[in-house]
């Protein structure tokens, strides 16, 4: 991952948000912070981050609202939801609705966040790359047939 990734973390709990942000910045990411869904969407639209970390339970616009909007506006942008252990069902639902991965709170170790980001970004890259290859191959085959005829 040569590219410096920009992470938007949307979290209403200040300590957690700052904890995540400072950890990720130490790990070499660029981190954007938003304390609610509405503010998060504004920043998302403005800065076009590579990956989103979204708390499911927030005042104003909650995580599901953000998920639905981002899925619609940028289906290729990985979105990882953060959910309390006690409400794991919500995490499962978020995944069904298009979240790429989930992390449970309390976050046992920040390595888990990094691992989830890494995995999601890898998936996004693979998807992108494969799509590119697929298009290329289709074009090649088309050219080949055209040249033949």
């Amino acid at each position: 991952m040569e590219k410096t990734l920009t992470i938007l973390t949307i979290e209403d709990e200040f300590l957690i948000r700052v904890g995540i942000a400072s950890y990720l910045e130490d790990e070499g990411f660029v981190v954007l912070q938003a304390e609610n869904g509405r503010e998060g969407l504004e920043m998302f639209r403005k800065h076009n981050p590579d990956i989103l970390l979204v708390d499911l339970q927030m005042p104003e616009l909650d995580g599901f609202g953000v998920l639905a909007t981002v899925r619609e506006e940028a289906p290729d942008t990985p979105i990882i939801v953060i959910s309390g252990v006690g409400i794991l069902r919500q995490a499962a639902r978020a995944v069904e609705l298009g979240a790429w991965d989930f992390i449970t709170k309390p976050i046992e170790d920040m390595f888990i966040v990094k691992h989830a980001i890494k995995k999601s970004w890898e998936r996004a890259s693979l998807l992108r790359e494969n799509r590119k290859y697929r298009e290329k191959r289709t074009r090649r085959k088309k050219e080949f047939h055209e040249n033949k005829s």
Binding site: K119, R123, L126, L127, E129, N130, Y133, R134, R137
Partner: peptide
Amino acid sequence: RSLLLQENRQYREY
């Protein structure tokens, strides 16, 4: 991921 990697590998080979 496994499937994506496989697909990716096949594309590369191709």
